[in-house]
Design a binder for these strands. Sequence first.
DNA 1: TTGAAAGCGTTACCAG
DNA 2: CTGGTAACGCTTTCAA
Lengths: 326, 326
Amino acid sequence: MSVTIKDIAKTAGVSYSTVSKALRDSPLVKKPTKDRIIAVANELGYQPNVAARSLVSKRSFTIGVVWPTIEQTVLSTLITTINKKLEQLSYTTLISINEVESALKIFNRYQVDAILVFDSSQSIDSYTSDVPIVTYGLANKETVYPIIDVNRLKSTYIAVQHLHNIGHRYISYIGEVENEELQREKVEGFTQAISNLGLPSFPDQIVKVQDFDQYDGYEATKQLLATTKLPTAILTGSHDLARGALQAIYEKKLSIPNDISIISYDNITAIDRFDTPLSTVGVPLDKISDKIIEVLMNVISGKEIETTIFLEPELRITTSCSNPLK
Amino acid sequence: MSVTIKDIAKTAGVSYSTVSKALRDSPLVKKPTKDRIIAVANELGYQPNVAARSLVSKRSFTIGVVWPTIEQTVLSTLITTINKKLEQLSYTTLISINEVESALKIFNRYQVDAILVFDSSQSIDSYTSDVPIVTYGLANKETVYPIIDVNRLKSTYIAVQHLHNIGHRYISYIGEVENEELQREKVEGFTQAISNLGLPSFPDQIVKVQDFDQYDGYEATKQLLATTKLPTAILTGSHDLARGALQAIYEKKLSIPNDISIISYDNITAIDRFDTPLSTVGVPLDKISDKIIEVLMNVISGKEIETTIFLEPELRITTSCSNPLK
DNA sequence: TTGAAAGCGTTACCAG
DNA sequence: CTGGTAACGCTTTCAA
């Protein structure tokens, strides 16, 4: 049996309502009494019962995260960050890996203060929730709930634009993949930029990958480098792909950025063990998590917010990227 | 404001205690009444308030999972499986990615029925929990809580034993890594088998890897195949490493199993897109999850259970493995 | 400054 | 079979 405020009240010799106030750090309790009560609580290893508390106060200080596809490692970093930041705001994060519908039901039963949905496939409109919902990463879907997403199309677009600005003409993209809406946006941004900027298209310019692992980047780049006319710059769809690309480039004894420039799409501020720090384009993870938390706090306090928020990508150019040799 | 049993009672024209019984499918309520109440509940979109329920019934039908290292993809499959199976037992799974101490606190506050801890680093004895705890994957640590783990040492041992039985003498292991206890166990099993069975040791027999991705397996195997004396069989520390190994072997135009046999350590029943279905050794994921759930249910119902349970590995030999050519 | 008491949504028990 | 009511642990008035 776990210890309750009544147990504390008994051993501290006060009423249990006083204990409640003291633990809530209410100014209505004298300092010495408060200190004594807190000491007793610690000694007894008291943990407040969330059920009882949220039953009366209608607030649980808990955010429910719906994360049906736990395999996605990109998201795991994002969730870790969000979890940490929410902890600092004294919110608890609870994750469900059930499918959306069922996870929403669970969190409604648990009366969490808000729900954050990570998902790109299922629609959530069929289910109505008493708890406010915020979603990440499905800006293309129709939803009544606030959506936060990153502008992938613009990311690859401005990357190509930069490469063009510094003089590149033959630019390749690695990371086309079948039936993935989010990846398609990146390819689209690339293609649009190439076309709008009047840059040449050439065979095998866009390289398909099976998956988004380092190995896929390695294979794709090896294939690309085997063609007769080499591009002077490569844009990759992810950090892992870029790692693989680097391996393939080094293996071919090519030099970065002299022979070839490389920019990687990513949201992670890469803490790299690479000789060449990678140039990247994308919305920094911290901006995404900050925005998500901001919106969460707003919906909790009942503020009206815009339904769709597109975060703007940033270009971070390092020594992996330079003018092509004339 | 969410709908409560009192709302249902009002619109159904019964007392709220009858509603409670009806929703619990109690035999104490007449069928027509029950049906009517359930209909109203559905119409109103009623979701039971877990807080209120667990406050009085002391049972939440929820399992808390502590998973501080969400990056580990192997575990994600295991958790997904466990989640599904618990759902069938009408238990809800809630995950926390906080560090152990803090996650335990949260779940104690939430009065979950049991806590499952996935972790290999932190010790959990310092914190005492009112809720029963079950841990996975830290059998080497000292703990008072029940531990379920797989016998990694035995896995690699019996794999080598099998290869020896069918005539192999030059066997390599890919997957040594610095400072990882669990990986060390696998290497240990390999080394013990080689030594006990009187098999030859040779330079570069055990190949180190940076990480456990496909690319690392590819690199390591390429390195291995560049030596003068090739092994006739390879054992890899994971499925991903094996995938990389296969690539390197194919690239060298070697044939499996004629030139080289391969067995992979893994707990995943691989649904493979490989030409060669991989031979594997390890405890099947289903056995692990079943055991974990069994133990969870036991601790919830207060049954005494053994503190350490080692699951035995199984060898599944396919066409990736044959006698070496004489 | 402290204590008493009501009430949150539910279950469980006891009357009717 | 159905309804009334106490109780779960806590917060929050309202009195003292």
